[in-house]
């Protein structure tokens, strides 16, 4: 708004006066505050529990802050916690997850972005049929496709390997990512594409020199979406890999829900927190981009 014009028109200017402690405000902020506490409580309990010693946990309640802060549970969760016969802690699962997530994210985004580009700018006959099946596939329960994929992976010799799981993540990431990229590329001005074609650029030339540099934001959104999604996966990890290669979530569940031994709640919570740390850090750093990612994924998908 132009302030000068406002004054000339005699319209209101400056912030609207509002009573700070009106009944309405107390209600709104009160409710939001209570709900916020509810949402933060589990995070707080996780942190507090992971910093206590076992004797303190047995005596006190889970909401009280630690009297004596100890980082021993964290060390133990990372390096010593046992799953079955292995006692090298969550570190193995962490590195497995890294080794799974990095190639999966790269591959799935590479495939889906080229795909979306082909669908947006180089439509060919029949493309829409396949795309529709792909989008429908996003809603089909994974359980229906689990076993056929086992057979396919076994046939090509990737069952139980890391690359088999990478392939599975690429496949199941495809619907949402293709949609994301297709919508984004469609929204770019078409004149750019036409100008590049007139200048003699081909399919890959336009992709690498024009589309890719212009759509870095959407790539960041896709990376966030995929890293959190793949890191948090449990079902595919447990089915398509062997115990040596279990991702962090599977190992975490095995550590915490193992039947043998005394339950060490502080170690369990430290392990849980460690597993949740990667997506949490990504979430709090990326902020609005994360929201954009899930909104783009959810609203359309």
């Amino acid at each position: 708004m132009d302030p000068v014009r406002n004054r000339v028109d005699g319209g209101p200017s400056g912030p609207r006066p509002r009573r700070r402690f009106s009944r309405r405000n107390i209600f709104i902020y009160g409710t939001l505050f209570v709900v916020a506490v509810y949402y933060l409580l589990p995070l707080y309990v996780m942190i507090v529990t992971s910093l206590k010693g076992m004797p303190e946990i047995r005596l006190g309640n889970i909401f009280s802050p630690p009297v004596e802060i100890t980082f021993e549970p964290w060390v133990k969760a990372w390096a010593e916690a046992c799953t079955g016969l292995n006692c090298d802690g969550l570190s193995r699962g962490f590195w497995n997850s890294v080794r799974i997530t990095v190639p999966s994210v790269f591959l799935s985004i590479a495939v889906a972005s080229v795909n979306g580009y082909a669908l947006a700018n180089w439509r060919f006959r029949g493309a829409d049929i396949f795309f529709t099946i792909l989008i429908f596939g996003a809603f089909i329960p994974y359980q229906v496709m689990l076993y056929p994929i086992v057979i396919i992976l076994r046939e090509i010799g990737l069952y139980g390997t890391l690359w088999g799981l990478v392939l599975v993540h690429t496949i199941f990431g495809m619907p949402i990512l293709t949609l994301l990229f297709r919508n984004y590329f469609t929204s770019l001005p078409e004149e750019l594409f036409k100008a590049a074609r007139v200048d003699g650029a081909g399919f890959w030339g336009i992709y690498f020199r024009i589309m890719l540099p212009m759509s870095l934001p959407i790539f960041v959104v896709a990376i966030i979406l995929q890293v959190t999604g793949i890191w948090n996966d449990f079902l595919f990890g447990v089915i398509y890999t062997k115990p040596d290669l279990y991702p962090m979530t599977v190992q975490l569940n095995n550590i915490v829900n193992s039947v043998q031994g005394v339950k060490e709640y502080n170690v369990n919570m430290a392990a849980t927190l460690l597993t949740g740390l990667v997506p949490l850090v990504i979430y709090f750093i990326s902020g609005k981009l994360f929201v954009r990612g899930i909104a783009a994924g959810a609203v359309k998908g």
Partner: peptide
Amino acid sequence: SIFLFPFALSFIV
């Protein structure tokens, strides 16, 4: 941010 952060966590966590 507070209401949405659990969504970033896995179902296992």
